[in-house]
Design a protein around this nucleic acid. Structure first.
Length: 254
DNA sequence: ATGGCAGATGGAATCTGA
């Protein structure tokens, strides 16, 4: 099986490619789920990814969204977006790697509580949950990972973070509904230091103040939870020049 | 401190992100 699975919202695959390649070399993940490629499938730098030792499957989109799964072992049974949920935005790609079903997701942001985009976010979350209920019956070894755009509870926000989008009760209830399907938060499977986040706004000197949110997650079924060895945020890439505003999160298995 | 940043598009100003 995969020994490690990571997620990283790269905020433009084109701009972040050097960071990605450097990180693959250092962290040596077996599976990497990427979000916000911001490019079409035809613009994915496949040669550079192959040279780094990874297969890649993508569900790209021009300008916004776009997701990919990189894997040491070739991915199979690839699915794009949620069946039966018509969505012009490329937010999901799922595939099987080894014995593990990997669902890579870029959850909608929602913009502001009460907005049209917020309504879309909640509809999308409901469709995702309904779909996953069936997927979990077929795949005892499943990992749902990506940029959830939800900070699950107060531990996942800087103490000064006020209410609003990403932390509203309906969003947190939707996150809870995913856990209620039988999934566990890999990060919370372990004792963790306080104030660990995965995203920091480019503005406000947020990174230097650690004014962040933990919104990038890996949720696993019990069969995978039993094999978890660690789960941590790797903040090193956030220190680089022209960083993504998200840091990669990686789960390692026994 | 919720802005003032960053990326894409297109070739300036606007949209989106979170």
């Amino acid at each position: 099986m995969a020994q490690s699975v990571a997620t990283w919202n790269v905020n433009s695959l084109k701009v972040r490619l050097p960071h990605l390649l450097e990180w693959l070399e250092r962290a040596q993940p077996d599976v990497v789920c990427l979000q916000e490629l911001k490019c079409e499938d035809s613009a994915v730098p496949r040669d550079a990814i192959a040279a780094a030792g990874y297969h890649v499957v993508t569900h790209g989109q021009k300008t916004y969204n776009g997701v990919a799964i990189l894997s040491r072992e070739e991915a199979r049974d690839i699915q794009r977006n949620i069946p039966g949920f018509t969505d012009p935005q490329s937010r999901i790609i799922a595939a099987t790697v080894g014995e593990t079903r990997v669902v890579c997701a870029y959850f909608p942001n929602g913009q502001a509580v009460g907005s049209d985009k917020y309504a879309y976010k909640l509809e999308w979350l409901a469709a995702l949950t309904l779909w996953l209920r069936g997927e979990l019956e077929r795949h005892p070894r499943l990992i749902l990972t990506g940029d959830f755009n939800i900070a699950p509870d107060e531990r996942d926000t800087h103490p000064d973070w006020k209410d609003g989008i990403l932390v509203s009760p309906p969003e947190r209830e939707a996150f809870r509904a995913l856990l209620d399907l039988g999934l566990g938060d890999a990060f919370r499977h372990f004792e963790q230091p306080e104030r660990i986040y995965s995203w920091w706004d480019y503005r406000m000197n947020a990174w230097r103040r650690n004014f962040g949110l933990r919104i990038d997650h890996l949720l696993v079924t019990p069969a995978l939870a039993e094999e978890l060895a660690s789960c941590s945020v790797d903040t090193a890439p956030r220190e680089l020049e022209r960083p993504s505003d998200h840091a990669p999160v990686i789960a390692r298995f026994l």
